[in-house]
């Protein structure tokens, strides 16, 4: 493909990204740097503010009996309840990523089983990359930017909840130094989705061909958008290795949670994705 085709692909993926992902990096950075005027996020920094902030968080997936469980210490129930709302937001995010994947030229022409495999293996990596713009060293935006939850608070939760977010903060703080913008992100996410080395793929060749075109488009995009950032393309590709380790650890933590938390039920969509993953 020539440069004009590669630029058209970059524009197309950026438009799809804006269409399917409601909280962009531009918006998130404006909120985090206090440039949104009166529209400041509600800060959750302890159990009391978590309780106060719950009304902001989408709680529709939580069964009533879960909320009224008497046998549990109140803060234990609160942690589980919060974990459930995270799950419902994640399931919604999987739907958004699926729509984005379908907008990648050629994706829906791939074998349907391969489309499923690419999503199964790619979606958590994509979600972790998409967390980075929402994070700074002190905390993260959640609930579409309505809430800022502090890193210290997440670290203070009981184990293993306390271990879930810290690796994502460490990754994100480093990732954010690359200073990608939303149009770069759109291409990078497509590259991640189109990974030809996912286990169980039936027809690798067309996937690799699609990825190669998106990689060319990403390389050109970074040259034009970040002319002074040396080796940015190479640095970005290296992040994909770190990402796989984070996802493996994340899935193991969830599997541990499933064993240790009697009252935890995993969202059916997330269950599907994580079953036999790593």
């Amino acid at each position: 493909p020539d440069a004009a085709d590669l630029r058209a692909l970059a524009r197309h993926l950026y438009e799809a990204y804006l269409k399917y992902f409601p909280l962009t990096k531009v918006k998130a950075r404006a909120i985090l740097s206090g440039k949104t005027g009166d529209n400041v996020p509600f800060v959750i920094h302890d159990m009391k503010s978590l309780m106060e902030g719950e009304q902001f968080i989408n709680c529709k997936q939580i069964p009533i009996q879960e909320q009224q469980r008497q046998s549990m210490a109140p803060s234990d129930a609160l942690e589980l309840r919060f974990f459930h709302s995270c799950q419902s937001r994640s399931a919604e995010a999987v739907r958004e990523v699926t729509e984005f994947a379908k907008s990648i030229p050629g994706f829906i022409d791939l074998d349907l089983n391969d489309q499923v495999t690419l999503l199964k293996y790619g979606v958590i990596e994509v979600l972790i990359i998409m967390m980075a713009p929402l994070m700074n060293k002190d905390g993260t935006l959640i609930s579409y930017g309505q809430i800022f939850m502090t890193r210290e608070f997440l670290k203070s939760l009981r184990k293993p909840f306390s271990q879930m977010m810290e690796p994502k903060f460490e990754f994100s703080v480093k990732f954010n130094t690359l200073e990608l913008d939303d149009s770069d992100m759109a291409l990078f996410l497509a590259v991640i989705i189109l990974s030809g080395d996912r286990p169980g793929l039936l027809n690798v060749k067309p996937i690799e061909q699609l990825q190669e075109t998106v990689l060319h488009s990403l390389e050109l995009q970074l040259k034009l958008n970040h002319p002074d950032s040396l080796q940015l393309f190479a640095k970005l590709l290296q992040k994909m290795t770190d990402l796989r380790q984070i996802v493996t650890d994340h899935v193991h933590l969830i599997q541990l949670l499933k064993k240790t938390e009697v009252d935890m039920c995993l969202h059916p969509l997330l269950q599907e994705i994580m079953k036999d993953l790593y």
């Binding site: 739907r95 699926t98 379908k102 349907l112 199964k120 969509l269 079953k275």
Partner: peptide
């Protein structure tokens, strides 16, 4: 296919009315 029912549904429905 049964193992990934919801993912299949999400991929095949352009309007994604799947109840999450």
């Amino acid at each position: 296919k049964e193992k990934h029912k919801i993912l299949h549904q999400l991929l095949q429905n352009s309007t994604s009315p799947v109840d999450l």
